[in-house]
Design a protein around this nucleic acid. Sequence first.
DNA 1: TGTTGGCACTCTCGCCCTCCGAGTGCTAAT
DNA 2: ATTAGCACTCGGAGGGCGAGAGTGCCAACA
Lengths: 363, 363
Amino acid sequence: MSISDRKKKILAAVVDEYIRTAEPVGSKHLAENAGLGCSSATIRNELAELVSLGYLEQPHTSAGRVPTPMGYRMYVNELMQKQKYSLEETEEINRRLNQKLQELDDTIGSISRLASQLTDYPALALTAAAPTTIRRFDLIYVDANTFIIVLMLSNNTVKSKLVHLPVSVDQPLVQRLSALFNSGFTGITEDQITPLLIHSSERAADDSMGLTAVIAAFAIETLSEVTAPMAFVSGENRLLNQPEFRDPDKAHRLMSYLSSGSYILPPAENGLPDSSEVRVLIGPENIAEELKDSSVVIASYDAGDNTRGLIGIVGPTRMDYSAVASKLRFLAANLSRRLGSGEAPPEGMHNKLIIKKSEDREE
Amino acid sequence: MSISDRKKKILAAVVDEYIRTAEPVGSKHLAENAGLGCSSATIRNELAELVSLGYLEQPHTSAGRVPTPMGYRMYVNELMQKQKYSLEETEEINRRLNQKLQELDDTIGSISRLASQLTDYPALALTAAAPTTIRRFDLIYVDANTFIIVLMLSNNTVKSKLVHLPVSVDQPLVQRLSALFNSGFTGITEDQITPLLIHSSERAADDSMGLTAVIAAFAIETLSEVTAPMAFVSGENRLLNQPEFRDPDKAHRLMSYLSSGSYILPPAENGLPDSSEVRVLIGPENIAEELKDSSVVIASYDAGDNTRGLIGIVGPTRMDYSAVASKLRFLAANLSRRLGSGEAPPEGMHNKLIIKKSEDREE
DNA sequence: TGTTGGCACTCTCGCCCTCCGAGTGCTAAT
DNA sequence: ATTAGCACTCGGAGGGCGAGAGTGCCAACA
């Protein structure tokens, strides 16, 4: 069912105003400021209808109107004007994105921090699990009791580890193991590394000291670490800026849910949506009980290596959807461009001589 | 100046009770529950004196007494009874410590999370900067456009990185560079890697493609990363459990200070105290304005490699000093035992076949 | 001299009540 | 269909009141 054009205008004005002020908005105020050419009485009539249609509600008789989740939904779907960035803002975000990405480790954490700083809401970042294999295996002999394991993974990262041994090994054994793992353990996923495979390798290498097991364990651990979905939340405390979270208990409930790191996305979103579209989950549309009266805005980006990452912003239902959505869209698009696309990730920028470490944190 | 024995008992009782209830404590209540054999009137007299001595104060006439920072200081220095753990608790902490340390990366984060969980206050973890050098350099040739840099550091960790090149290199060059770096760049600290050194190496290696600069940049970056003091905060939201932070603004101020990651320790503590003693900073003893009416409990531990780490707990001045201090002491002692002590860190436990990943997060 | 019970006093907190104003719904006029 | 006017409603701020907790002081007592 469609509603009149003027109703839409009024609804949009109500949502905009409520987002700005967090206070129920009345007919008179609307008539004066919203610039639609009619009097407060007319608007009152329209408002009454919007209430009975379910788009608005009144906290109590004779307070102004407040959008319902359905009202927000309509706003997000049809009425919201997409925000464009000025050149300076774009510049600013880009600059900070660059800065963040230079701190190459903990990328996911930086992204979520950046998103939170930009929007002034709590942010979360997730990465999906992606099947990863070992592409290359190296063992570096250091001394009789020490060697280094170096794994090059199919996602073009390298993991390494120092191993101290209670027993001593000789260089030939290390080389033998290296060759063996390179042929037997590359190109397979974590669950293909079976005890059987380990055992047979052990015999093939003539390894009586359990080295094989140690190396295999590191391989398994590394793969499971890389494969595991990761979650990161930051800026939880920004919730306290929002009037709807002035109640410390309420704030605490949501904050500890957020930092618990266990999000439940609605089934539809579960597979980390492919499109670079921004999704909005309003109040009861969320599955998690703790989010039932909050909203979440999610964007996904191409993290390279067939993986999609996800950035989300959490806030009250009265969230500035327009601003948040466009910021998230921008961020996701840029991340995709930088991280994603094809086999060879743009290592280029890491190769440059980057000495200065940026030390800025939140605020 | 020393105070009478009974005054001390009473002061201790007041602090204990106030820590428990967060409410001013009155003479009658004290007479009935604190088990010192005298009447409320006597206690009133003593309380009045304690007030004039500066150990206690009254929020207003005819409310109970509340400890002043000076009162807490006395409590912490002399009156507080050190809490002993039951066997089960010790067991429990040990179990979780084991679990945490198995997730070998992000140790500092895990420690702070664990501390926060144990105490139910926000926790922070810091590591001091320690001079670190490169002990060994390896370059692994992958293909004409790709090689891996592997650095073994003086703190017995290994860092590695994949480098993609726009130009192609041959294996001999890579080997030449490897040898060169091994002789020229090991055993020196970050600031000894000068442009001059890089330049002369470049010529020595006959490297016309700037590879030397790339590798040197990684060395510098890695060293500065490892050397840099790190900070980590977790459980900020637990502040909201404390009645003194029911005011969202107050809570927000402190929380955002905490997550800003810039602590200022009093000069005395600045060098990360050597002793494994636990320090308590009460209210105004803190330098940072934001901490003036909160307290911080700090313990330091031997993180190996001549580095000391620091764990801190932040809470209201009415903090359960006794419990927090003993938990922190226990944690620090255990960490020292596991991480610290001498040249060869106990890698042993990492060598074991650890496959199960623990997935618990906060709460 | 130190301790105790008694008593009047003080101050906060929670409660209720009232009043004010913003905003509504309805009706009659345009 | 829109508007102006009007009576009505309801939440929130502000003021007054009473209860209760806790004190300080005093006089009596060991």
